[in-house]
Design a binder for these strands. Sequence first.
DNA 1: TTCGCATTTCGTAAAAATACGAAACAAAAA
DNA 2: TTTTTGTTTCGTATTTTTACGAAATGCGAA
Lengths: 108, 108
Amino acid sequence: MKTEEKILTAEQEKMARYAKAMGHPVRIYILQLLAGQSCCYTGDLSEELPIARSTLSQHISELKDAGLIQGEYNPPKIKYCLHQENWEEAKQLFTNIFKLKNNGNKCS
Amino acid sequence: MKTEEKILTAEQEKMARYAKAMGHPVRIYILQLLAGQSCCYTGDLSEELPIARSTLSQHISELKDAGLIQGEYNPPKIKYCLHQENWEEAKQLFTNIFKLKNNGNKCS
DNA sequence: TTCGCATTTCGTAAAAATACGAAACAAAAA
DNA sequence: TTTTTGTTTCGTATTTTTACGAAATGCGAA
């Protein structure tokens, strides 16, 4: 970024952050599971998904860092759920961009 | 991916693809502009955004490759608009994941 | 043909994402 | 105390993303 002046809004940055976190099929899988059904444990996922446990752990970390999910130590397991508040915020941001009306403007 | 069996669905892959394309503030900016207002030209954007023209062009390419926008050569400019059909599909995919009900399941 | 305009492609560099297996860790069970 | 269980961190390799300026492209105008 060249200049000092801020062109991109905080909302755009936030939305991009959420979108980026959702930008991998494994992470979509996890979010879908959590959004639709319940909380879950890393071990459960690792049995369903064809990736190494360490890789899965990395994906979970990214979702956590982005704020979309949260974990609770429930020894010896860790229980993961959606971060309700941020998930709601993400929903709002995506809803907003998709409901914009562009008067049927199109190219071809 | 280790095994042959397919765990991740085509929908999940597609959604991740769209999300990934939306995973950068500049690209959100562009999509928001196109969704809300009209079509636009690279030059217009390049005057508003503090990035090099070539970088902007790359971002546009990514949105095009992901299928979210389309361009029409309108010499000597190129006019970009949303790809209505795919944009609608993305909207549907995101709407679906966000409307899932998880019975208030949460961690803390 | 030569010029100018709008945009992309090329070459390159630096940073981030993706993936794995091995090792570490924390806490309960033996 | 040692072992087991569930999970993460470390070390590493490969690929992808992000970014820039310079050069190339396509095309209408002079």
